[in-house]
Design a protein around this nucleic acid. Structure first.
Lengths: 327, 327
DNA sequence: CTGTTAGCGCATTCAC
DNA sequence: GTGAATGCGCTAACAG
């Protein structure tokens, strides 16, 4: 297959013995086409190794040639989160196969118009919103319908691809209970992030069943906050024997805070995180956490957007306990 | 500035009272243009907030609309390296401003044709190669000249944006010497990676000056290798009192390996890393390392490619010692 | 169901 | 130095 010159739609049409329009119809799958035409065109496509020119297509459909990844948060620092990095990498991979690129954007939490502005911009092939709020998703223009996906909660119009936070939290907290912990605190995510709700509910539920009292402290997914949260927890409830943080980075910070307090982990207090980031296995003690197929999630979201697949409204991905040393 | 409809070149030309061709010339900076026309057009551009349509431009210049980030390595796992993540994020940011996206690619070390194939593909606006080898860079087609940059070593045709590994290593090793270490081992990067050479030279130089003997062990920038390397070092040279790894991930692995051996850090052996990744401050003990403006480097490389700036052939960025607890 | 026609927004020949 | 004309590769109207 020595493609001396990349094949164009014209080449495909000629090879298939049809007009460009017909070829275009079967390739995009939009208009009508006879079975016969369909066969001949698909054959020609594979024979010539045809890949549609993203620029030309974008130009005429006014649809853009890049996949934007937008992350909602208080500051641009959210873009440095390891979770976001994994989403970006996976999305970039999917995009590359379709000759489009990705771009990364921060949507300030206190600027409700930012998503609409981003979505209005030219050159946008699709949009994946990470950690969205429902009101924010309502602001995406109709023109983008079918080309938006959420990694986090979705809406009726925006399909959601997310970790099963409820089951994941349930698994971690039950593990803590099973290993003898009884006074379990939880460091949550930011209060505005709706996908944390299910996790908090699951935590409450398990504690309710086992006769524990909820000990909730607010987090923000950063390590610095984790250290402070650990100190706060031990001050308010000195007999705490386990801390579950809804983010590995935060859990790592908890480890730090506890260490500063002279509390032994897991001897005095067990610590568990969430997400299984790359460093989770490298901390001392190595972090017990729950692992998530972030790459799979991001790939599904990007594919859904790029291929305009109208599939399920919400897909949940499994959360699997990883027991290491900290709990 | 209520841009109800995004301005087009035609709008700019009309507002400036010139033809589209003239407007295009001054905007691209390519053809001739009278000072007067130049002024009027630039004024119109800012007034209308005009941004060229990347798709249309790509279509006509046959130049593509995405910035590819290519990473050379043995396996696709190199794409997960934190360094690569930082480069990708920064590049995505620069690209977004110009309405283009980025894509991420792994170039197998043992497949010399992969770079050429990637570069030949349509839709490529530019190329940033991370950790390249010189022979690999020779394979990029002439057509891409001026639209390629290297984060790492460059060639005559490919400008280089890199950390000043020599000075950085010098700084770290001298710090070890200054704090009383005398038998210092170094875990290098992969042997095929040319940008490590300068670091190794600097290490040798300092040891030569201070009367030490080089203790070199090969690394591959992974944490797993770091743990093995630590064990190897302590076996070959049991009196080693410091280990410098040319990668934080590897240094964290060294910490792990030393811990398994029952060696105290920094009591028995000091450990230093390189790059100052996000987790460096969170390890126990916190990692002493050297910090690098990776975002700045990547931004410069991406800008150079996207704006077709023919600047300096090689730019070195400072490496700054960060003293924490491990050394 | 199909082919013909007409642009999308821009950079680039060529005359002037 | 400038403007009029041309076409990049593709999809979307429209007529057959």
């Amino acid at each position: 297959m020595t493609a001396e010159r990349t094949a164009t739609l014209d080449d495909v049409a000629r090879a298939a013995g049809v007009s460009r329009a017909t070829a275009s119809r079967v390739i995009t799958g939009q208009g009508p086409a006879s079975p016969r035409a369909r066969d001949r065109v698909t054959a020609a496509v594979t024979a010539l190794g045809y890949v549609p020119d993203a620029s030309a297509r974008a130009l005429v459909t006014r649809t853009g040639t890049r996949l934007a990844i937008a992350v909602i948060g208080h500051s641009a620092a959210v873009l440095d989160d390891p979770y976001v990095g994994r989403v970006l990498t996976s999305a970039a991979h999917v995009a590359a196969e379709r000759e489009v690129g990705v771009s990364l954007h921060w949507l300030p939490l206190d600027d409700p118009g930012s998503l609409a502005r981003l979505a209005d911009g030219r050159g946008l092939g699709g949009l994946v919103v990470v950690n969205p709020t429902r009101p924010a998703l309502e602001t995406v223009p109709r023109g983008l319908r079918g080309r938006v996906a959420a990694v986090g909660v979705g809406t009726r119009d925006v399909p959601s691809f997310d970790v099963d936070n409820r089951a994941g939290t349930d698994g971690v907290v039950r593990h803590l209970v099973r290993t003898g912990r009884q006074r379990i605190a939880m460091v949550t995510g930011p209060s505005w992030l709706p996908c944390c709700d299910r996790a908090v509910e699951a935590y409450r539920q398990v504690l309710h069943e086992t006769g524990g009292e909820p000990r909730l402290v607010q987090g923000d997914f950063t390590a610095a906050r984790g250290a402070d949260a650990a100190i706060e927890v031990m001050k308010r409830w000195p007999d705490t024997d386990a801390v579950f943080a809804l983010s590995d980075l935060t859990a790592l910070g908890v480890l730090d805070g506890l260490h500063a307090l002279g509390v032994r982990v897991p001897g005095d207090v067990a610590v568990a995180g969430f997400d299984d980031i790359a460093f989770a296995g490298l901390s001392r003690p190595a972090l017990t956490t729950s692992t998530h197929p972030v790459e799979e999630i991001a790939t599904a979201a990007a594919t859904s957007v790029l291929d305009r697949r109208d599939g399920a409204r919400a897909t949940f991905y499994p959360s699997t306990l990883v027991v290491r040393d900290s709990a």
